[in-house]
Protein backbone atom coordinates (compact mmCIF):
# COMPACT_ATOMS: atom_id res chain seq x y z
CA UNK A 1 0.00 0.00 0.00
CA UNK A 2 1.13 3.57 -0.65
CA UNK A 3 2.14 5.65 2.35
CA UNK A 4 0.35 8.95 2.77
CA UNK A 5 2.05 11.38 5.05
CA UNK A 6 0.90 14.80 6.23
CA UNK A 7 3.26 16.67 8.51
CA UNK A 8 2.14 19.83 10.31
CA UNK A 9 -0.32 20.60 7.54
CA UNK A 10 -2.41 23.75 7.73
CA UNK A 11 -4.49 25.37 5.07
CA UNK A 12 -5.91 28.86 4.80
CA UNK A 13 -8.30 30.37 2.30
CA UNK A 14 -7.44 34.05 2.59
CA UNK A 15 -7.57 34.85 6.29
CA UNK A 16 -9.55 31.80 7.19
CA UNK A 17 -7.81 28.72 8.52
CA UNK A 18 -9.77 25.67 7.39
CA UNK A 19 -7.23 23.02 8.38
CA UNK A 20 -4.80 23.36 11.23
CA UNK A 21 -1.78 21.32 12.19
CA UNK A 22 -2.77 18.00 10.75
CA UNK A 23 -0.10 15.34 11.16
CA UNK A 24 -0.95 11.82 10.14
CA UNK A 25 0.62 8.81 8.44
CA UNK A 26 -1.73 6.48 6.56
CA UNK A 27 -0.74 3.15 5.10
CA UNK A 28 -3.83 1.03 5.63
CA UNK A 29 -5.87 -0.21 2.72
CA UNK A 30 -9.14 1.40 3.85
CA UNK A 31 -9.20 4.80 5.48
CA UNK A 32 -12.41 6.69 6.19
CA UNK A 33 -12.87 10.40 6.85
CA UNK A 34 -15.94 11.84 8.60
CA UNK A 35 -16.88 15.24 9.96
CA UNK A 36 -19.51 17.95 9.78
CA UNK A 37 -20.01 20.10 6.69
CA UNK A 38 -17.21 22.64 6.54
CA UNK A 39 -14.93 20.69 8.87
CA UNK A 40 -12.19 20.50 6.23
CA UNK A 41 -12.68 16.99 4.81
CA UNK A 42 -12.66 18.02 1.16
CA UNK A 43 -9.67 20.27 1.70
CA UNK A 44 -7.82 17.35 3.30
CA UNK A 45 -8.79 15.02 0.45
CA UNK A 46 -7.63 17.56 -2.16
CA UNK A 47 -4.29 17.92 -0.42
CA UNK A 48 -3.53 14.27 -1.17
CA UNK A 49 -3.27 14.73 -4.92
CA UNK A 50 -2.01 18.29 -4.94
CA UNK A 51 -5.28 19.88 -6.07
CA UNK A 52 -4.84 21.98 -2.94
CA UNK A 53 -1.32 22.80 -1.73
CA UNK A 54 -0.82 23.26 2.01
CA UNK A 55 -0.26 26.78 3.34
CA UNK A 56 2.09 25.23 5.88
CA UNK A 57 3.60 21.79 6.35
CA UNK A 58 3.95 19.14 3.68
CA UNK A 59 2.08 16.24 2.17
CA UNK A 60 3.75 13.26 0.55
CA UNK A 61 2.50 10.10 -1.11
CA UNK A 62 5.13 7.37 -1.22
CA UNK A 63 7.65 10.05 -0.45
CA UNK A 64 6.60 12.20 -3.40
CA UNK A 65 5.87 15.79 -2.39
CA UNK A 66 2.55 17.08 -3.71
CA UNK A 67 4.06 20.52 -4.13
CA UNK A 68 7.16 19.75 -6.14
CA UNK A 69 6.11 16.43 -7.68
CA UNK A 70 2.44 17.03 -8.31
CA UNK A 71 2.43 15.26 -11.63
CA UNK A 72 3.98 12.06 -10.26
CA UNK A 73 1.61 12.19 -7.30
CA UNK A 74 -1.46 12.53 -9.55
CA UNK A 75 -0.33 9.53 -11.55
CA UNK A 76 -0.59 7.47 -8.40
CA UNK A 77 -3.62 9.09 -6.84
CA UNK A 78 -7.01 8.85 -8.51
CA UNK A 79 -9.71 11.24 -7.34
CA UNK A 80 -13.44 10.70 -7.39
CA UNK A 81 -15.64 13.76 -6.81
CA UNK A 82 -19.14 14.02 -5.40
CA UNK A 83 -20.76 15.25 -8.61
CA UNK A 84 -19.98 12.98 -11.55
CA UNK A 85 -21.25 15.60 -14.00
CA UNK A 86 -18.28 17.77 -13.13
CA UNK A 87 -15.90 14.87 -13.51
CA UNK A 88 -17.05 13.43 -16.82
CA UNK A 89 -15.24 15.54 -19.38
CA UNK A 90 -16.00 13.74 -22.64
CA UNK A 91 -19.35 13.55 -24.46
CA UNK A 92 -19.65 9.78 -24.61
CA UNK A 93 -18.96 6.94 -22.20
CA UNK A 94 -16.02 5.25 -23.94
CA UNK A 95 -14.42 8.57 -24.79
CA UNK A 96 -14.48 9.59 -21.18
CA UNK A 97 -12.86 6.39 -19.99
CA UNK A 98 -10.23 6.74 -22.72
CA UNK A 99 -9.44 10.32 -21.70
CA UNK A 100 -7.00 9.53 -18.89
CA UNK A 101 -5.27 6.86 -20.97
CA UNK A 102 -4.84 9.18 -23.92
CA UNK A 103 -3.48 11.90 -21.63
CA UNK A 104 -0.89 9.40 -20.50
CA UNK A 105 0.07 8.83 -24.09
CA UNK A 106 -1.49 5.44 -24.69
CA UNK A 107 -2.14 4.67 -28.35
CA UNK A 108 -5.75 4.72 -29.49
CA UNK A 109 -5.96 1.02 -30.31
CA UNK A 110 -4.45 -0.08 -26.99
CA UNK A 111 -6.73 2.30 -25.14
CA UNK A 112 -9.77 0.91 -26.89
CA UNK A 113 -9.45 -2.67 -25.64
CA UNK A 114 -8.60 -1.51 -22.13
CA UNK A 115 -11.63 0.78 -22.16
CA UNK A 116 -13.92 -2.03 -23.25
CA UNK A 117 -12.76 -4.32 -20.46
CA UNK A 118 -13.16 -1.55 -17.90
CA UNK A 119 -16.69 -0.70 -19.03
CA UNK A 120 -17.75 -4.32 -18.69
CA UNK A 121 -16.18 -4.49 -15.23
CA UNK A 122 -18.24 -1.51 -14.04
CA UNK A 123 -21.56 -2.53 -15.49
CA UNK A 124 -21.35 -0.23 -18.50
CA UNK A 125 -20.70 -2.84 -21.17
CA UNK A 126 -22.69 -1.95 -24.30
CA UNK A 127 -22.74 1.73 -23.39
CA UNK A 128 -19.56 2.68 -25.29
CA UNK A 129 -21.15 5.21 -27.59
CA UNK A 130 -23.87 6.27 -25.19
CA UNK A 131 -23.99 10.04 -24.51
CA UNK A 132 -22.79 10.58 -20.94
CA UNK A 133 -25.59 13.01 -20.12
CA UNK A 134 -28.24 10.38 -20.77
CA UNK A 135 -26.92 8.01 -18.11
CA UNK A 136 -28.69 7.72 -14.75
CA UNK A 137 -27.08 9.27 -11.68
CA UNK A 138 -25.77 5.92 -10.52
CA UNK A 139 -24.39 5.07 -13.96
CA UNK A 140 -22.69 8.45 -14.13
CA UNK A 141 -20.91 7.81 -10.86
CA UNK A 142 -19.88 4.36 -12.11
CA UNK A 143 -18.53 5.99 -15.26
CA UNK A 144 -16.61 8.56 -13.23
CA UNK A 145 -15.19 5.72 -11.15
CA UNK A 146 -14.33 3.62 -14.22
CA UNK A 147 -12.59 6.59 -15.83
CA UNK A 148 -10.39 7.04 -12.78
CA UNK A 149 -9.70 3.36 -12.16
CA UNK A 150 -8.80 2.57 -15.77
CA UNK A 151 -5.49 4.36 -15.19
CA UNK A 152 -4.81 2.00 -12.26
CA UNK A 153 -3.99 4.45 -9.49
CA UNK A 154 -2.33 3.02 -6.37
CA UNK A 155 -4.52 5.19 -4.16
CA UNK A 156 -8.11 6.24 -4.76
CA UNK A 157 -9.37 9.31 -2.91
CA UNK A 158 -13.15 9.66 -2.90
CA UNK A 159 -14.91 12.80 -1.70
CA UNK A 160 -18.49 11.86 -0.77
CA UNK A 161 -19.06 9.72 -3.88
CA UNK A 162 -22.48 8.53 -2.71
CA UNK A 163 -23.94 11.78 -1.36
CA UNK A 164 -25.92 12.53 -4.53
CA UNK A 165 -27.05 8.94 -5.07
CA UNK A 166 -30.12 7.07 -3.91
CA UNK A 167 -29.63 4.20 -1.50
CA UNK A 168 -29.55 1.53 -4.16
CA UNK A 169 -26.89 3.24 -6.24
CA UNK A 170 -24.95 4.20 -3.14
CA UNK A 171 -24.79 0.52 -2.25
CA UNK A 172 -23.70 -0.35 -5.75
CA UNK A 173 -20.82 2.11 -5.55
CA UNK A 174 -19.99 0.87 -2.04
CA UNK A 175 -19.78 -2.71 -3.30
CA UNK A 176 -17.42 -1.74 -6.10
CA UNK A 177 -15.25 0.21 -3.70
CA UNK A 178 -15.18 -2.69 -1.25
CA UNK A 179 -13.77 -4.95 -3.94
CA UNK A 180 -10.94 -2.65 -5.04
CA UNK A 181 -7.43 -3.99 -4.53
CA UNK A 182 -5.95 -0.51 -4.05
CA UNK A 183 -5.72 1.79 -1.10
CA UNK A 184 -8.87 3.88 -0.69
CA UNK A 185 -9.42 7.05 1.33
CA UNK A 186 -13.15 7.65 1.52
CA UNK A 187 -14.79 10.84 2.76
CA UNK A 188 -18.42 10.10 3.53
CA UNK A 189 -21.57 10.86 5.48
CA UNK A 190 -22.84 7.34 4.82
CA UNK A 191 -21.38 5.83 7.99
CA UNK A 192 -22.33 2.25 7.12
CA UNK A 193 -19.87 2.41 4.23
CA UNK A 194 -17.11 2.44 6.82
CA UNK A 195 -17.85 -1.05 8.12
CA UNK A 196 -14.72 -3.12 7.82
CA UNK A 197 -12.47 -0.10 7.30
CA UNK A 198 -9.05 -0.21 8.91
CA UNK A 199 -9.10 3.29 10.26
CA UNK A 200 -11.36 6.35 10.40
CA UNK A 201 -10.33 9.99 10.84
CA UNK A 202 -12.74 12.46 12.43
CA UNK A 203 -12.40 16.13 11.51
CA UNK A 204 -13.95 18.97 13.44
CA UNK A 205 -13.49 22.63 12.59
CA UNK A 206 -10.32 22.03 10.66
CA UNK A 207 -8.70 19.77 13.23
CA UNK A 208 -8.11 16.07 13.17
CA UNK A 209 -9.78 15.27 16.48
CA UNK A 210 -9.82 11.49 16.44
CA UNK A 211 -8.12 8.68 14.59
CA UNK A 212 -9.43 5.26 15.53
CA UNK A 213 -11.18 2.08 14.45
CA UNK A 214 -14.51 2.68 12.64
CA UNK A 215 -16.81 1.85 15.57
CA UNK A 216 -15.04 4.17 18.01
CA UNK A 217 -14.64 6.94 15.44
CA UNK A 218 -18.28 6.82 14.43
CA UNK A 219 -19.33 6.88 18.07
CA UNK A 220 -17.20 9.94 18.71
CA UNK A 221 -18.52 11.59 15.55
CA UNK A 222 -22.10 11.05 16.72
CA UNK A 223 -21.39 12.70 20.08
CA UNK A 224 -19.84 15.65 18.24
CA UNK A 225 -23.02 16.05 16.22
CA UNK A 226 -25.35 16.24 19.21
Amino acid sequence: MPVIEAVGVSHRYGERTVLSEVTVRLEEQRVGVVGANGSGKSTFARLLNGLVLPSAGRVTVDGLDTRSQGREVRRRVGFCFTDPDAQIVMPTVAEDVAFGLRRRGMAKADARSRVEKTLVAYGLGGYQDHPAHLLSGGQKQMLALASVLVTEPALLVMDEPTTLLDLRNAQLVARVVAGLPQQVLLVTHHLDLLDGFDRVLVFDEGRLVLDDAPAAAVRHYRTLMT
Binding site: R46, N49, L51, R71, R74, R75, G78, F79, F81, A86, Q87, V89, F99, G100, R103, R104, S147, V148, T151
Partner: peptide
Protein backbone atom coordinates in the same frame (compact mmCIF):
# COMPACT_ATOMS: atom_id res chain seq x y z
CA UNK B 1 -10.34 20.71 -10.90
CA UNK B 2 -11.44 17.41 -12.41
CA UNK B 3 -9.29 17.98 -15.49
CA UNK B 4 -6.26 18.58 -13.30
CA UNK B 5 -7.06 15.53 -11.19
CA UNK B 6 -7.41 13.43 -14.34
CA UNK B 7 -3.99 14.37 -15.62
CA UNK B 8 -4.65 17.22 -18.05
CA UNK B 9 -1.27 18.82 -17.42
CA UNK B 10 0.67 15.57 -17.15
Amino acid sequence: EALTARGLDD
